[in-house]
Write a protein that binds this DNA or RNA. Structure first.
Lengths: 249, 249
DNA sequence: GGGATGCTTCGGCGCGCGCCGAAGCGATCG
DNA sequence: CGATCGCTTCGGCGCGCGCCGAAGCATCCC
């Protein structure tokens, strides 16, 4: 029959890999870990609402499959995503898995949803309305060129330098990548540059973590910086979401 | 608890999507369909060595899940991958799922394996040793710039024009993307440019399909063209593989 | 018309996997 | 030292899913 070759060995590997994500509990783990931090087994269990024993076994499988890395410390076992490539892949699959806009049941759920859609981390870079707006602004200002691929222009280079961000030279990691935003369905920046930008936003106090998840909050200083450096005016998102219908733009 | 939100709705979507690939038969289907062509239910069944009834049901699920598109024609039902994005994602997962070098059992299997590793289609662009060599040559000749993202240079633009390939202007598809080669573990070109290049290679007679799978063969004309246009000398791959150990470079 | 051929539907079988609670174990704390 | 805490291991339960063959239904060919 020919052709079976490619498939037999490799189809199995593909299926095994996918099987790791093909369970709602394990998927929940990976999604939670997309915040880029390390979680304990207990935290993951509570998050996904399963028994700790169950969570422990799932963690075993994910580590064995190479999706997660672990490190033990005292009586804790910390889990995080294995590497940025894995994170990118999971994010890509999530985007493909579709904009299922998650029926919102409670008001506080609506708050959290909006906070996530507004600004969050995507492993090591920024995502959400704010990240897409930043990408758009950078494009508008001629810092990014999309017409022959995606690349930083000389202006973009200069801008980063001005902020004190060094563009990391070639490792095996792509310097600049576009990542389809899961809520906006439009691209934001990832890759080494995206990560450096996000790191800078944290250290410069533009954004801070809020709650235990992936959501971040743009500080006053952050709003000022975005206005000054990119000419964008992100709305204040500490106010309740129902005020906001027109502010997203 | 907080944080459950993101996960509950979305973790389910992620898991459902992954479940589509999490079966060796369905994975085999998708891998086969990565050749970019449309297969019938019967062909897929024979390829994956399952009963036709089984294949039919799998096809249903893949179509319902949005991974495959179908079109019926007389008593046939043709299946292909839904779109280039889906293809890219599957290829990415395959690469992540790992370089499991597929233990080779028979001599003819070795032939097929080498043919695949040497040159094949990856949905709508080229992959394998040849594709990676082409990408390297284009980089060496200054047609591609990687240091600030991945982009065509002016030289690259001119080269494509010389071949009569128009760089497709912005649709929602990325113009140029690097795709991790599954056999070489190094990047080759994808995106609209990769697809255009592959299409050109077919129409210009540089390559032809061989067998029923994804493998392609570089013609004499193709070898001449690669030498002339890129200064690379791909070895003749119609000869048996054991001759070739040193020729791959 | 009759007889292939390609596909779908259905019933049924059996394995695998996700779940839990109980018990055990090592680290930590008082 | 004993009590607590975080995690792991184990046994057992039940659902879901992948598989098949038989039967049915179109389509195409003579």
């Amino acid at each position: 029959m020919l052709g079976g070759m490619d498939t037999e060995g490799n189809g199995l590997a593909l299926a095994s890999w996918a099987a790791l994500l093909a369970d709602r509990t394990r998927a929940a783990f990976c999604l939670a870990l997309l915040d880029g931090r390390a979680w304990t087994v207990g935290e993951l269990a509570r998050h996904a609402r399963v028994a700790v024993s169950t969570a422990s076994e799932h963690a075993d499988r994910l580590v064995a499959g190479g999706l997660l890395a672990q490190h033990r410390q005292g009586r804790h076992r910390y889990l995080r995503l294995a590497d940025p490539e894995t994170a990118a892949l999971i994010e890509a699959v999530t985007a493909a898995a579709g904009p299922r806009p998650t029926p919102v049941t409670s008001l506080s759920a609506a708050h959290r949803r909006h906070a996530l859609a507004y600004a969050r981390t995507c492993y090591d870079h920024l995502a959400g309305t704010v990240a897409v707006a930043m990408t758009d602004a950078m494009t508008r200002r001629g810092m990014l060129a999309w017409d022959r691929g995606l690349a930083l222009t000389a202006d973009g280079d200069a801008w980063l330098a001005e902020l004190g961000i060094a563009v990391p030279a070639g490792g095996r990691r792509p310097v600049l990548r576009s990542c389809l935003d899961w809520t906006e369905r439009r691209p934001h920046l990832a890759g080494a540059v995206g990560a450096a930008l996000c790191r800078h936003a944290f250290t410069a106090g533009w954004i801070i973590r809020v709650g235990s998840g992936r959501a971040v909050k743009v500080t006053d200083a952050g709003r000022a910086a975005l206005a000054r450096h990119l000419g964008i005016e992100p709305p204040d998102r500490t106010e309740p979401p129902h005020r906001r219908a027109s502010a997203v733009a």
